[in-house]
Amino acid sequence: MFGINEIKTAALLGLLSGLLVLGGYYLVGNEQGLYLGLAFAAASSFSSWYYSDKAALAAYNAQPIERQQAPELYDMVASLSAKAGIPMPKLFFVPTKSPNAFATGRDPEHAAVAVTQGIVDLLLREELEGVLAHELTHVRNRDTLTQAVVGTIAGAITFLGRILTFGALYGPVTRDNRQASNPFGLLFLIVLAPLTAALIQFGISRTREYSADLGSAEITGNPEALASALEKLEAMGHQIPMNGNPAMSPLLIVNPLSTKGLQSLFRTHPPTEERIRRLLELAKQKQATPVAA
């Protein structure tokens, strides 16, 4: 049975695809645009499904890790993968002092987990286990695929908005000039649709982060360790930002951004304070639950 997070994600993804179809319709100006939008959505989804891991790893210059290079880390991921019930993903290393980690791949059989030098240096063993379990939960839940598809479709909507902007400035976009009859629709697709697509993308990302935090607590049995790790990552992330393609930022375990005012709408992750609060509350519930004999 699907949970509330899965239902919410499916609804937001459907809305996002609908925006792309609407953009195709408005770009062409007739029913053929609907088919164009559908084809564009399908092509975008397929490409992101197949190439998501390569794109994300390349964005952060991640390098593969063999067991002899980092046996402790390798064995840690192997043990956590077994507890999560998934094949061990390929391991990658990102040569940056910014503390972060991410998972990518179209399914658990083609997954990869990347860690930065900064996160390995910063966290204690149990904290790093919490972070890795969080990323493995993303793999198990196929969040990596969802985020890749969402990011690609959102990018396509923004691209269509730019095309429509060009047409509005330099002439009608279609031969029958149907856009001119509905300036509010054109305004929506040029300005509001890309903005809406970004907000939907961030909404899906925030939903999946809460689920991955719970999955980490389930795998490790230690929600307090992940809470401690998130506190450290949030503090250091502001001091040493993670450079790379902003489109890939929803994959990261933390992506610090101001939570004040309207900027809070554009966070790719839930507020770290709220994530920590939930984890600590889960730890209290776990302590209050009597252990079965």
Score class of each variant (00 low, 15 high):
251 L>G: 05
146 T>A: 14
197 A>K: 05
37 G>L: 02
32 Q>P: 05
171 G>W: 05
172 P>C: 02
203 G>N: 05
164 L>N: 01
56 A>Y: 00
231 E>Q: 10
49 W>F: 09
231 E>C: 04
62 A>Q: 04
5 N>P: 09
60 Y>R: 08
149 V>E: 02
240 I>M: 11
99 P>D: 06
138 H>L: 08
292 A>P: 04
191 V>A: 14
149 V>M: 08
265 L>D: 06
154 A>Y: 06
13 L>Q: 06
19 L>P: 01
154 A>P: 01
239 Q>H: 14
70 A>G: 04
97 K>S: 08
119 I>S: 01
265 L>C: 07
289 T>S: 13
190 I>P: 01
146 T>V: 11
66 E>A: 15
235 A>V: 13
116 T>S: 03
210 Y>L: 09
123 L>Y: 00
10 A>P: 09
57 L>K: 06
41 A>H: 02
43 A>D: 05
10 A>L: 13
81 S>Q: 02
127 E>N: 02
162 R>F: 12
143 D>P: 00
118 G>L: 05
84 A>E: 00
195 L>C: 06
292 A>R: 12
206 R>T: 01
157 I>K: 04
181 S>F: 12
188 F>S: 10
274 E>V: 07
50 Y>Q: 11
133 A>V: 00
269 H>P: 05
42 A>N: 05
293 A>W: 09
96 T>Y: 04
115 V>E: 01
13 L>S: 10
80 L>D: 00
97 K>E: 05
81 S>I: 00
33 G>H: 01
17 S>K: 03
93 F>K: 11
194 P>A: 09
86 I>H: 06
158 T>A: 15
241 P>K: 12
22 L>Q: 11
200 I>W: 03
283 A>L: 11
39 A>G: 09
159 F>P: 06
239 Q>K: 15
4 I>H: 13
191 V>R: 09
204 I>Y: 03
132 L>M: 06
266 F>W: 11
43 A>R: 06
97 K>V: 05
292 A>L: 12
122 L>M: 14
193 A>K: 01
207 T>W: 10
288 A>L: 09
216 S>T: 07
90 K>R: 15
53 D>V: 08
23 G>Q: 05
32 Q>D: 15
33 G>Q: 03
68 Q>K: 15
1 M>H: 09
33 G>S: 13
80 L>H: 00
179 Q>R: 07
107 D>E: 15
247 A>K: 12
201 Q>G: 07
207 T>D: 09
285 Q>R: 15
32 Q>K: 13
147 Q>S: 13
144 T>L: 05
72 E>C: 09
90 K>V: 04
117 Q>H: 14
58 A>R: 15
153 I>M: 02
186 L>P: 03
93 F>W: 14
185 G>N: 10
43 A>G: 10
183 P>S: 10
68 Q>A: 14
74 Y>C: 01
166 F>R: 11
280 L>H: 12
163 I>L: 13
66 E>G: 14
150 V>Q: 06
20 L>S: 03
234 E>W: 10
45 S>H: 02
287 Q>K: 15
122 L>T: 03
211 S>Q: 12
244 G>H: 04
73 L>H: 08
9 T>L: 08
197 A>R: 02
